[in-house]
Design a protein around this nucleic acid. Sequence first.
DNA 1: AACCATCACAACCGCTGTATT
DNA 2: GAATACAGCGGTTGTGATGGT
Length: 333
Amino acid sequence: MMDVKGNSNSNSNRNSSSSTTQSDEEMMGDLRRGPWTVEEDFKLINYIATHGEGRWNFLAFRAGLKRTGKSCRLRWLNYLRPDVRRGNITLEEQLMILELHSRWGNRWSKIAQHLPGRTDNEIKNYWRTRVQKHAKQLKCDVNSKQFKDTMRYLWMPRLIERIQAAAAATNTTTTSTAKSASPAATVSAAATNHHIINNIDGGSGNLIMAHGVNVGNDFGVSHVTQSYTPENSSTAASSDSFATQVSPVSDMTTDYYHIPVNHNPNPDYFQAGQVGYSESMISPTGYFNQGLDFQAMEHNNNNNQWLMDSGDTSDNLWNPEDIWFLQQQLNNM
DNA sequence: AACCATCACAACCGCTGTATT
DNA sequence: GAATACAGCGGTTGTGATGGT
């Protein structure tokens, strides 16, 4: 347990800690470290309910907690606070994190301010465990332009697709009793809902959930919400270097971004049914026809296993075609 | 069943900025 | 202005859970 670790190095920690002063620790006596017990949580919650937050060292002492003020503050902010939101990071939140990180970098607390209920620690953990893992397995640096472009032009569009799919499924089930919406109706619903991720307001950073209200496009990826053709792709492609580099596979790009009509009400359709997904995408199939034995890669290369993960829907965003595409791009850089 | 590898996340550390004396 | 205390941030680590062999 962490208590062992804490006790074993507590002396050195005390000596080296610049923010927990000697007087603080003298005031509090021997300190506990490691996981919080229910009793400790109870004490902290009760004290804050009565006296409020702030002056954490004093609070720790008065609450009868043998913890540093920092530890109490962290426990409260990251776990006990009533408005802390638990559970999986949603697709919208993922999208928000990606966008805000591309804008601000590792400013976790700043990013967290725009994700109500989420803590900087949680976002940081998400970034490290999910995003950096993907970068690592692509064998590129998470801060590299390649990976940032990958996020912007593949990951985020894929998230948007899935958000739309979920929204469309919801619309289909809530607005109509028809057993199956017509393709046109489904696409229309998706088109309406694409504004759900339309913009992060430049001033507040708030994600604007404006259905049908075009408030601008800060992602540069809203084009994925329409049927993506060479004609309408030109403007998007011309505005960035990555898209230009994509040109050799522009046909793939074209169809790649053509959202298949999703008749499956399951919002996880895209991840749960990799086969269905691939089959529904025109050009990825075409890739196989170009002599790429991706299925063999898939079976032979355990490094790609993460792409096939089905446990966490949030991770399973890319299919083998994506990876092949990414690897080609990285090789060309 | 036992072992090992990996993952997710809570908690800690060190540092910096700010407020107070 | 210097010293001290405090709050907050970003990076790192330890541990339990989980899955694979």
